[in-house]
Design a protein around this nucleic acid. Structure first.
Length: 153
DNA sequence: GCCAACGTTGGC
DNA sequence: GCCAACGTTGGC
């Protein structure tokens, strides 16, 4: 089983929204590196941290599970959708998504500022300068380190 | 294939 | 709101 971190802006869709709906298609990813992970690597029952970006306290807000492995992102085919991409065709899809399922909501968001302070996480892509990847893999060690901390707060 | 211009991300 | 960092686009 693999571990991931996936970013979303809580003003658009946050951990409380996922808790409410239970399962959600993680659509709208328009980055090739992230696309490759969605399409080729993420497996059902993999776990992912839900990261809140572009908000007052950016950080990890909870845990979700991959509920359905990669399939073509239908929003790319819909000319009326904000995520429409005319270069993605149903017969040759450019963009993919997975469905995610709610697992847990942390009682407190684990702030990015705390993550940055941990020597154990120094090579986590999230805390590296200029990182903009909206989906990234986590090592077992990183996952368990963060998860242990989450259990304590 | 290079690279300048432009758009987006996302912390602060 | 600012701006650094990065990805993408398109002219050449």
């Amino acid at each position: 089983m693999a571990y991931w971190l996936m970013k979303s802006e809580p003003d658009v869709f946050g951990i409380d929204d996922l808790k409410r709906v239970g399962i959600e298609p993680w659509d709208g990813v328009r980055n090739y590196q992230a696309r490759n992970m969605l399409r080729d690597q993420m497996q059902v029952d993999d776990l992912a941290f839900f990261y809140h970006s572009n908000c007052k306290i950016p950080g990890i807000a909870g845990i979700m599970a991959i509920h359905r492995a990669g399939y073509p992102d239908p929003t790319a085919f819909d000319s009326k959708h904000p995520y429409y991409d005319p270069k993605s065709k149903p017969e040759n899809p450019r963009w993919y998504l997975v469905d995610v399922a709610f697992v847990a909501r942390f009682s407190e968001v684990i702030p990015l500022s705390w993550l940055k302070d941990q020597p154990e996480l120094a090579d986590l892509p999230l805390v590296r300068r200029g990182n903009r990847l909206s989906i990234m893999p986590l090592s077992d060690a990183h996952w368990h380190f963060i998860n242990r901390h989450a259990q304590r707060v």
